[in-house]
């Protein structure tokens, strides 16, 4: 009852829906960056929506199954191949003992979720199987997979079906990331705030599970102030504070960084607000150099967007008869 790792891809980790409850000691929630795709993959193979899957970024792993199972790959368009024959993404397919799953080249998106019926059964740490690599916690030995690893599988019945394109979700071009201004938004001038939303940014190469950096926009103008005691001398510095998930910090006022599931929990940079919960999944599907804009929304709009995402999940469940 195992999946053997023949080659690990670029950075493949075990993830579920995360590990809430320890952010106050600096342990972030972790879990799939694109939770919608993670849930979809689990639904297709008949798992609980929050079962542990593999998250692969840019390059897929090569895996060997030791038992028959059902597999589904969702998220970005990274074509799966079973014993060399291409399979569809967002569709369940059976595998036999000895079968090998590999991947072609990434066509769109950034991350795929590989669900196997029964789920990846690594030990639960602090309530989750998710990998937090910075803290060497959870997942398989607290790290990204390596060739030669063997991942235990849980018991599972298997599922079937496919999810059509109209029920999936991927970022547009440019990606539009809705954000609620706040936190230290008052530290920048009104003109700088306007420009921040007007600019089209590009995802920088420094983009990972901790956070996504964006570049190519206009540097921020700060409202002048005498820096408070303990904050540090740069106008973008604050007395070290908590960082919300999705918060947009701008060190030095130049390149915004959106913190994601493996966020650092606090630090000394001002934040302009947060990307709303409904759009966090989209960030996980952005490749470096892809264009993105930040779109201002109100709390009411953020809550409406959140309700839309719940409805989209409900449509997925209905489609698969769950």
């Amino acid at each position: 009852m195992a999946v053997n790792v023949i080659s690990p891809g670029l950075s493949t980790t075990v993830q579920d829906l995360g590990r809430p409850g320890y952010y106050h000691v600096g342990i972030p929630i972790s879990g799939g960056m694109d939770r919608f795709a993670l849930r979809a993959a689990n639904m297709l193979v008949g798992n609980d929506e929050g079962a542990a899957v593999l998250e692969a970024v840019f390059l897929g792993p090569e895996l060997e199954f030791t038992v028959p199972a059902t597999v589904a790959v969702t998220g970005g368009d990274l074509p799966p191949k079973l014993n060399g024959d291409e399979r569809s993404t967002w569709e369940a397919f059976p595998v036999k003992a000895g079968d090998r799953l590999s991947f072609g080249y990434l066509k769109s998106g950034a991350r795929v979720y590989i669900a196997v019926s029964g789920g990846i059964d690594v030990p639960v740490k602090l309530g989750s199987r998710s990998t937090y690599t910075l803290g060497a916690l959870g997942g398989h030995e607290g790290r990204a997979l390596k060739a030669g690893d063997s991942l235990p599988l849980g018991a599972g019945a298997g599922g079937k079906g496919a999810i059509p394109a109209n029920l999936r979700r991927m970022p547009g071009n440019p990606a539009e990331l809705r954000m609620l201004p706040g936190l230290y938004w008052h530290r920048i001038t009104a003109a700088a705030g306007k420009q921040f939303f007007a600019d089209t940014w590009k995802v920088a190469p420094e983009a990972d599970r901790i956070g996504y950096r964006f570049k190519g926009g206009t540097a921020l103008d700060f409202v002048p102030r005498e820096q408070p005691f303990g904050a540090g001398s740069n106008p973008s510095n604050i007395v070290d504070a908590c960082y919300p998930y999705g918060s947009i910090q701008v060190p030095g006022g130049t390149e915004p960084i959106v913190l994601h599931r493996d966020a650092v929990s606090g630090g000394g940079y001002m934040m302009l607000g947060c990307v709303i919960s409904a759009d966090m999944d989209l960030i996980g599907q952005l490749q470096p150099h892809s264009p993105a804009r930040f779109v201002e929304v109100s709390m009411d709009q953020a809550l409406a967007a959140r309700a839309d995402r719940k409805a989209a999940l409900a449509r997925l469940r209905a489609h698969l008869g769950r």
Binding site: M179, L180, G182, L183, P228, F229, G230, A231, I238, V239, A241, C242, P244, Y245, G246, S247, M271, G273, C274, V275, I276, S277, A278, M299, A302, L303, R306
Partner: peptide, 15 residues
């Protein structure tokens, strides 16, 4: 508000 899932509270600007 820090997005739709957080409330951030600054007691003082200085330490």
């Amino acid at each position: 508000f820090g997005g739709d899932e957080h409330i951030f509270a600054e007691v003082s600007e200085e330490m």
